[in-house]
């Protein structure tokens, strides 16, 4: 078990009260697993990803326990997390292009980061160069300033950087959304390559684009309004989802071959609730076509089949 998250609850402090962005998340990511984390904007997927590595105000840790390789992560303590960040758990941020210091040459910046983690740059250099080859970057980039690189090149540079110390878990936050389709495919496949070569043990790929996850992820976890809705293998989520939200979401995605004039797709009526004062019970209740009395209680996230977790009372009932 690479990553275990139990009851993780994280709020955002605002003037008008706490935004309940992540509620009781419990899940695991196995060694070697690429887990896609999908949902609409504001569903808490980015909060979840960031809270595992960078839980800083206005984010507020409420409760929960996170263990990585059987070691508890002190995610509520920014200082103590320094030991784990980059070495054990790493992130490729959404705006990776802007994550690099513009006044430092990339090689020098890399050296500084490594040395701050007490790792010798010289000793790492051969490995660094090998990995640059893998992402099709020339070794010259080490002598360049970030501004001399294109957006896609910077993105790949950050990918190499953040995985240089072979972390156990890598979080990729919307890294493909700003890219052209051709680059998107290359970057997504590189992530898989990193896992296959053992640069990272497991991956959490956060994106709103489910079709990307279908291509590269082993499993997909769907979130809705701060709650986990469903987690299962990619095939099951796409072809045989059980949570009504997942079903409607997947059903609303246009696919090549589907035309409006022949097959009209339906969306999900209503809109996601505000998390400042979320509805009690299942937060999808108000938009759910099969909601009933029981949905006023929060459904637990239960394994209904091996590896298939769902949080829906209706499903439990029909399964029982």
């Amino acid at each position: 078990m690479s990553l275990q998250v139990e009851n993780l609850t994280v709020y955002y402090r605002t003037l008008r009260g706490d935004v309940q962005a992540l509620e009781n998340a419990t899940f695991t990511i196995a060694d070697g697993e690429i887990m896609g984390l999908a949902g609409e904007s504001g569903c808490g997927k980015t909060t979840l990803g960031h809270s595992l590595i960078y839980l800083k105000p206005p984010m507020r840790f409420i409760e929960g326990r996170v263990t990585l390789d059987n070691e508890e992560l002190p995610i509520w303590d920014m200082e103590r997390m320094n030991e784990f960040r980059f070495k054990k758990i790493s992130i490729i941020p959404q705006y990776a292009m802007n994550a690099m210091n513009p006044t430092r040459k990339i090689g020098k910046m890399t050296a500084e980061i490594l040395e701050s983690r007490k790792v010798s740059y010289k000793a790492t250099l051969p490995e660094l160069k090998r990995r640059l080859d893998l992402v099709e970057l020339s070794h010259d980039v080490l002598n360049m300033y970030p501004i001399e690189l294109s957006g896609g090149m910077k993105q790949r540079m950050v990918m190499v950087l953040s995985t240089l110390l072979n972390p156990s878990l890598l979080i990729a936050d919307e890294i493909t959304s700003a890219l052209d389709v051709s680059t998107q495919k290359a970057v997504a496949e590189m992530l898989v390559g990193f896992r296959d070569r053992g640069f990272v043990k497991s991956l959490m790929v956060i994106t709103h684009d489910i079709s990307i996850l279908y291509q590269i992820a082993d499993s997909i976890m769907i979130m809705y309004a701060g709650q986990l809705a469903e987690k299962a293998s990619t095939q099951v989520i796409i072809h045989n989802p059980r949570h009504p939200y997942t079903k409607m979401l997947i059903g609303s995605l246009p696919k090549v071959g589907v035309k409006h004039s022949k097959q009209r797709l339906a969306g999900i009526p209503g809109k996601p609730p505000l998390l400042l004062n979320p509805p009690v019970g299942c937060r999808f209740r108000e938009r759910c076509p099969v909601a009933f009395d029981k949905c006023f209680d929060v459904p637990p996230f239960i394994e209904i089949e091996p590896g298939h977790f769902v949080a829906c009372w209706k499903e439990f009932e029909s399964n029982a």
């Binding site: 099709e136 051709s182 495919k185 684009d209 489910i210 291509q215 796409i238 696919k255 090549v256």
Partner: peptide, 24 residues
């Protein structure tokens, strides 16, 4: 053809087509 092959779809997985990574 490259576009059709590279666009992520829900009805089929990416084929092993090499996409060019050269910048603009």
């Amino acid at each position: 053809r490259m576009l059709m092959a590279a666009v992520p779809r829900l009805d089929k997985k990416w084929e092993k087509v090499e996409v060019e990574l050269r910048g603009k």
